[in-house]
């Protein structure tokens, strides 16, 4: 039997399909215009299983150096009413998954995926002395690798610990929201590999994006709202103990 796959291989259509992905899948991103988008992410705590797929996917997609993280997963354990005293761990950023917890089900326990919140009023952008990090017209906080001094002021200024200095390139690095993917109509690597849909890339300027329906009908929270950073990382099911 000749499957569709074999036929595509024979005709060379497979390669063609991939070319269209590289160039921007025509139906999703005909001509990507920055001003038409305003990117963020929705994270559903109630769906995260702490498998670490996102961390591994990110590391492979973006060549993240060992020991540093553009995204990571934390495990929270909150004993009863002690909401101010959570126990948190994130062994190797959750990259290798999580060992069974010692407390088991005697405490409230859940996973929290973290990544850059792509803040609209980002403190990291504010403090960069030379303009090497910025909010792009489509709302993604990026670093200019060719312009960054490596002064690390932005790393100090990020309230969420999302930035690090690349040990070899000696420039600040962070989550780009897979800018090289989302501008081609693909989703981020972490969303692509997330098996439960705990992460959803969201285009806040696109009225057809399901994020709008979700935000209308659910209680969502951002991390450290007191920092007033204009965070676009929206969390559903976030516990008050998370910081």
């Amino acid at each position: 039997m000749i499957t569709r796959r074999k036929m595509l291989m024979l005709t060379g259509a497979a390669a063609l399909a991939w070319d269209s992905v590289l160039a921007g899948t025509p139906e999703n991103a005909p001509n990507y215009r920055m001003t038409d988008h305003w990117w963020g992410m929705l994270i559903d705590i109630t769906k995260c299983i702490g498998c670490g797929n996102c961390v591994r996917a990110c590391a492979k997609e973006n060549n993240v150096p060992e020991g540093f993280f553009r995204t990571w997963v934390e495990r929270y354990e909150v004993p009863d009413w002690e909401i101010q005293d959570p126990r948190v761990d994130s062994p190797n950023g959750g990259k290798d998954g999580f060992p069974p917890s010692k407390s088991g089900t005697t405490v409230k326990s859940f996973f929290v995926p973290k990544l850059c919140n792509h803040c609209a009023d980002s403190p990291c952008v504010q403090v960069c002395p030379v303009g090497a990090t910025f909010v792009s017209p489509d709302g993604v906080v990026l670093v200019d690798e060719k312009y960054c001094l490596g002064c690390r002021y932005c790393i100090q200024a990020c309230p969420y610990g999302c930035r690090f200095l690349h040990p070899e390139r000696e420039t600040a690095q962070k989550c780009t929201l897979c800018y090289h993917r989302i501008t081609k109509g693909l989703t981020t690597a972490c969303c692509e590999e997330c098996p439960t849909g705990a992460r959803q890339l969201a285009d806040l300027k696109n009225p057809a994006d399901p994020i709008h329906e979700f935000l209308r009908t659910h209680s969502v929270q951002i991390l450290k709202p007191q920092m007033a950073t204009g965070s676009k990382g929206f969390y559903y099911g976030l516990d008050g103990s998370v910081r």
Binding site: G67, F68, F69, W72, E74, R87, V88, D89, S90, N92, G93, K114, I155, Y160, G161, C162, R163, F164
Partner: peptide, 9 residues
């Protein structure tokens, strides 16, 4: 205790 993983260094 717990540090955000990028904070350790």
């Amino acid at each position: 205790g717990f540090m955000y993983p990028n904070e350790i260094e």
